[in-house]
Design a protein around this nucleic acid. Structure first.
Lengths: 199, 199
DNA sequence: GTCTATACGTGGATAGAC
DNA sequence: GTCTATCCACGTATAGAC
């Protein structure tokens, strides 16, 4: 029983929740119709290219949300560690402590994720970039900051998968906790890594 | 054009590849029929409960494979670090350097993953357990070994997601490389961690 | 812009012959 | 045990009235 009239952002917000819950393949047009209160034909009025365009717009909507809620606060003048903590809080809330899925991951797992590869890649990269900036701000070499930023995203996505698979959200909680320390930790004293020979 | 007669393990192997590629929802009975060379009716002869039972048997098949290829070698008398390296080599090969997906993750992402939660949770846990044992063998406190074992699985799953999303497999390669060092690294000198107060 | 009605394919699953 | 033929529900998408 959806509200009679929803704004575009409201519609996209509901659809994001739907896709996070059911995935792209799992969310049928009937589901989409129900969760937005729009008839199927109306959907094709708003999204001329059907389901694929819906997903693309939801993805764009997510990026806007991320920009406002996650990245923009990172450009304040606060201490990097403080900003990292804020980001992790937001992430923890967004995923409800590991109970809810990631839209990006759900789209990656859709039947032909290649259709979404470009926007998906972009979304992952802006996220990684934002964390990398924090690392550089706090004095880490760019390469190290990059590595750790990738690691943050990798660990969060991985924790969500493991939590979904085991039903045990404590893994997610611990990952979030660890990241607060590890992402911006200063380099150990004499840890000038010798580059390993490749095989 | 599949071979005329396949053994059960061969069938399950092909189906595992299929599910890894297309996911549970994305693999139709027609796909399943084609990749095994069995007509739909024959499938129901082998798997009386249909698609769901197929997935369950494929999962069981995976666990057998893991036992032989991954866990059993861990029970040798070699040095733990050597065994860890062997496990990571096997994993790297299994995922083809990040290019191929994880069956567990694909099933987690299926429409109602709850049907598979029990076997999925089991599969994740036996994997984590095996790594934990290595940690304990190499002298780590059990809690630390457990944490790091979870971390290994989390990072691998996360790296696969990020690689699938970005198309950049270097993240997977780096994660594997890091894990060789980090999982069994000795605890730092005076790093007797004070337990953090919970909020 | 929204609806009702419908088209058309394909999904999973079965019947029953061989 | 495998096949051909078929069932029905539901998938996405469209037509056309209002």
């Amino acid at each position: 029983m959806p509200a009679p009239l929803l704004t575009k952002p409201e519609i996209l917000g509901r659809l994001m929740n739907l896709f996070r819950e059911k995935g792209f393949d799992g969310a049928s047009l009937s589901d989409i119709s129900e969760s937005t209160g729009l008839g199927k034909s109306s959907l094709y009025h708003h999204f001329k290219n059907g389901k694929e365009e819906i997903a693309l717009q939801v993805l764009a909507h997510l990026e806007e949300q991320l920009e406002r809620a996650l990245f923009e606060p990172m450009r304040s003048t606060e201490a990097p560690r403080k900003k990292l903590g804020r980001m992790l809080d937001t992430i923890d809330t967004f995923y409800e402590g590991g109970k809810r899925a990631c839209l990006l991951e759900r789209l990656c797992a859709s039947v032909d994720s290649r259709r979404f590869r470009r926007p998906l890649g972009h979304a992952f990269n802006v996220w990684i970039d934002a964390v990398e900036v924090l690392g550089v701000e706090s004095g880490l070499p760019r390469a190290v900051a990059r590595r750790r930023a990738e690691d943050l995203v990798v660990r969060i996505e991985g924790a969500l998968v493991v939590c979904a698979g085991t039903g045990n959200t404590s893994v997610f909680a611990r990952v979030i906790r660890d990241l607060r320390e590890s992402v911006l930790a200063p380099l150990p004293r004499r840890a000038v890594r010798r580059p390993k020979r490749r095989v």
